[in-house]
Design a protein around this nucleic acid. Sequence first.
DNA 1: AATTGTTTAAAATCTAGTTTAAAACAATAT
DNA 2: ATATTGTTTTAAACTAGATTTTAAACAATT
Lengths: 202, 202
Amino acid sequence: MAKNKNTEQKIFDAATELFMEKGVDRTSVRDIASKAGINLALMNYYFRSKENLFDAIFTNLVKENTKDLLNILDSDLGLEEKIRKYVDAYIDMLTTNPLLVPFFMAIIHRSQEKITQMKVISNLYGTEKFSQQIVDEGKAGTIRRTDPTHFFVDMISLITFPFAIRPLIMDRNEMSEEDFNNFIIERKEHITGLLLKSMKEC
Amino acid sequence: MAKNKNTEQKIFDAATELFMEKGVDRTSVRDIASKAGINLALMNYYFRSKENLFDAIFTNLVKENTKDLLNILDSDLGLEEKIRKYVDAYIDMLTTNPLLVPFFMAIIHRSQEKITQMKVISNLYGTEKFSQQIVDEGKAGTIRRTDPTHFFVDMISLITFPFAIRPLIMDRNEMSEEDFNNFIIERKEHITGLLLKSMKEC
DNA sequence: AATTGTTTAAAATCTAGTTTAAAACAATAT
DNA sequence: ATATTGTTTTAAACTAGATTTTAAACAATT
């Protein structure tokens, strides 16, 4: 039982990396086995099929990377502070793992039907509490009345889309990796400012 | 030579549809041949390889769908009117073909390296003239001084990202196709307002 | 009738996912 | 210690399907 978890984990980790880098359909089981340093058949032994392995990996990725964000949305912070923290945390997370967004985008296209049936997928989207907060503060008059659905879509669009088209932005503006990261850091303030301004009467 | 262009076009069209729907890697040459009603080997005869066919299709899709948008950006309209028209035209175009964005996102992930080398790819991004206009009007004081790179990224993020995550938005908000389209129509005004407001001093 | 371009059919080649069967290993019971 | 049992690993085979190549058939044109 010693090596058991170990092998399973090695397969899982190798496949995660490869799927994110090259895409699920361009990664063969032989690639995975070779990267994990294990025998071909072990993938099947532990995960039954490649598609099954993918499901496990995808579910895990969503869970791991949305936990903190959902906690922020559901916290008792005021709206401004909450948005600031959310934008910050989200961008930090994506900077750490810049392949996440492109990978998710590819998966949405690849596994459209399957994906909406996965329970974990609701993690990718906003929370009831946050929507309510926007409505409440609108009624209270601390902010302009704002449609929470549009607002949330605005927010995640502004945060995540640049990562989806990262190669284009870099190419077009002749940015190095470092330049891009700086650009993204600039965006933290920029996005927060934009969103807050959109909620102010003026 | 009568059927020549015809057959080539049939392959091209069938492949375009299938690639957009199911993704390049989940479409087989047999699928294409069968959908086009032609013999398997004809794909090779006309396009040499599947990857080659894909390149031709991708280039064509980008060209076809960016022409009008680039014309708007390069026109002599005032900034406000230009933004209004651009948002409108872009959203109309994507509504007509809601698979375009998810497909492009998947391709960016799939063909990262290749893509930045394609000449056509610069079409996907803003124009020099538009950037200059933002800088100029900022200096002239008709708008707040605005970084054109951030502004342009904001604009295309807000316009296109909702299409990239369409299934999630629909699922989360229990929208039908029609509901989603109405949501998107709402966004025309919403996005234009947001962008213009962001450029106003206040 | 010959040439050229187009289409078809069949075969070869290659790649990939999955399965099988047997061997190696580890733990536990005898 | 030996045997038994269950788990893990290995190597090879199987299956299916994809792409590509080759050669033959066909059609149109010269």
